[in-house]
Design a protein around this nucleic acid. Structure first.
Lengths: 148, 148
DNA sequence: TACCAATAGTTAGTGTGACAAATATATAAA
DNA sequence: TTTATATATTTGTCACACTAACTATTGGTA
């Protein structure tokens, strides 16, 4: 009987994740941020780790390689990122934020933190801990690597 | 400073939702279920509510109309669902599970409940309550309708 | 040196999500 | 009745997730 509930929770999880993304995307659009939510995730990680390869970046943001290839294509087209040939390994690139990309990150960072905050109204720091613990447990139950 | 954490939680939420879907999809494929996770959600809701219109169904599963149109197209192509013209309103359809669709639902239902259960190992019923409460709060914070 | 498996990245195909716009029909107002 | 507005669904476009297949390169090994 509780079994029936499990399916329900996976539904709520999916629905909420989509809502969170959709809400952020609306705010991004309203503020004319010129990037999508996923593009922002990539930009932000690049600003925190220079000279990553695409594989390293893929592991950081938990996206697969084809998806990342396309996101980077788009960010290159927008002039925020450059693919620099790796000096030793001709198969790979070092990803590099352009000046324009750096500027974009510092411009958007505070605005996006503010947008993200909205979701957590009426919730306590203890709730965050519980939420994180449950999400991580689910992730690991399904074969994901545990958080370091 | 806690601000930085918020962005992190939205990342974990997205990552976990994708993992849950990915895990289920792998099991669906291994079991040759012949439907995707989203197609299953639609089938299941149709089995619980006969003669829905697409709009009613869209509201149940929280998908937008174009997405639902396409999922139903695929389910029709697979022979699980039929669009029956609405007797009074020529704009709309009544969605109808075929015999094959009914059979598919009863065949898959127990298997899928079992798959869903996996995510909740090491978690208590109290955790489920907390999780549901937090997810619903986030959903409502971002403008979603509250649960009835 | 020649072969071979592993790795980095890309491309193509399908399904889904969001959004805008179009079509057809229904209903209400003038 | 005519007009206006609202509703049900579809179509088109872009972005992302996942799979499979492909190219190029690397590094180990016979």
């Amino acid at each position: 009987m509780t079994q029936e509930l499990f399916a329900r929770y996976s539904f709520l999880l999916d629905r909420t994740a989509r809502k969170v993304k959709q809400y952020a995307q609306h705010q991004f659009k309203a503020g004319e941020f010129d990037v999508t939510v996923d593009q922002w995730l990539v930009l932000k990680n690049l600003s925190e780790n220079e000279l990553l390869s695409q594989t390293e970046l893929a592991n950081l943001v938990f996206k697969d390689h084809p998806t990342l290839t396309r996101i980077i294509d788009l960010l290159c087209k927008k002039g925020y990122v450059e693919r620099v040939p790796h000096p030793q390994d001709r198969r790979s690139f070092q990803l590099h934020l352009t000046d324009s990309g750096l500027e974009k990150v510092s411009e958007l960072k505070p605005k996006i933190l503010e947008i993200r905050e909205k979701a957590w109204e009426n919730l306590t720091p203890k709730d965050f801990e519980e939420f994180k613990r449950i999400l991580d447990t689910i992730y690991q139950n399904l074969g994901g690597p545990s958080e370091e």
